[in-house]
């Protein structure tokens, strides 16, 4: 096939792609505009039972109680991404060159505040926007800053690091099973204990999410061999 033919073919393929996608977009736009005006939803139901969820913020109530099972699986997805990353590569070496003045200064200034802010988000999630994932993400930002600045982190034993990465998922599942053994449904938090249970789960999840995101950022499993032979 000549170059001109190939170019024409590519152009046609590109045009076809746009036509198909534009058609799909138009169909979807029609669909969105045709949705009923007074939205059906679960706003009222969510608020009606809010008093029994252990939290006051409706979004957190959905995440940590009404649909806690989704959030449990979401923790599994995050753990899975970490295992996947570790299975594919070894971590990139940390930067050895000293960081620039700005990065160093910002790291020293921001990291304590970020950690404090993560704790605040965790606590605030019960009654205003916030929660475990937000706290974990901020914690991860602190960890990424530290990693980029090349600062030496206190060395944590491998097994402890892995346990902390699992902490959120294990706490969540264990709480779900515990309340079931107590006679309820899986993940049915009794209203009296819900607040404490959810806070414990969120704290554990926040730590695991923060560490997990940092570990994914590092791009692979820790590079040194396991201390004990396999």
């Amino acid at each position: 096939m000549s170059d001109a033919h190939a170019a024409a073919g590519a152009l046609a393929a590109r045009a076809l792609l746009w036509i198909v996608l534009a058609g799909a977009g138009a169909m979807l736009a029609t669909a969105v505009l045709s949705l009923p005006e007074d939205g059906l939803g679960l706003a009222d139901e969510t608020l009606a039972d809010l008093g029994r969820t252990g939290v006051e913020h409706p979004v957190t109530a959905v995440l940590m109680n009404y649909r806690a099972y989704d959030t449990l699986l979401e923790m599994a997805v995050l753990f899975l991404a970490l295992v996947g990353v570790w299975s594919m590569a070894e971590a990139r070496p940390r930067p050895t060159a000293p960081p620039g003045l700005v990065l160093q200064f910002l790291t020293q200034l921001l990291v304590p505040f970020l950690i404090l802010f993560a704790g605040y988000l965790l606590w605030a999630g019960a009654h205003e926007p916030g929660g475990a994932f937000q706290a974990g993400a901020v914690l991860a930002a602190a960890g990424v800053l530290v990693t980029l600045s090349g600062a030496q982190l206190p060395s944590v034993p491998r097994a402890l690091h892995r346990s902390l990465l699992l902490l959120g998922l294990v706490t969540f599942a264990a709480a779900g099973v515990a309340v079931q053994l107590g006679g309820g449904a899986f993940l049915e938090f009794p209203p009296s204990a819900a607040k404490a249970l959810i806070l414990a789960i969120e704290a554990a999840a926040g730590i695991s999410i923060g560490l997990g995101l940092v570990a994914i950022f590092e791009g692979g499993r820790p590079s040194e061999p396991e201390s004990a032979p396999r």
């Binding site: 097994a159 892995r162 346990s163 990465l165 998922l169 599942a173 079931q180 899986f186 396991e226």
Partner: peptide, 24 residues
């Protein structure tokens, strides 16, 4: 049957967690 459903969900997760935490 309910505990069996939950067991079927959590068993493989537990297996993955154990294999990850204790590679040996």
């Amino acid at each position: 049957g309910t505990p069996l459903i939950v067991a079927a969900l959590l068993l493989p997760l537990a297996g993955a967690a154990i294999a990850f935490a204790m590679p040996r």
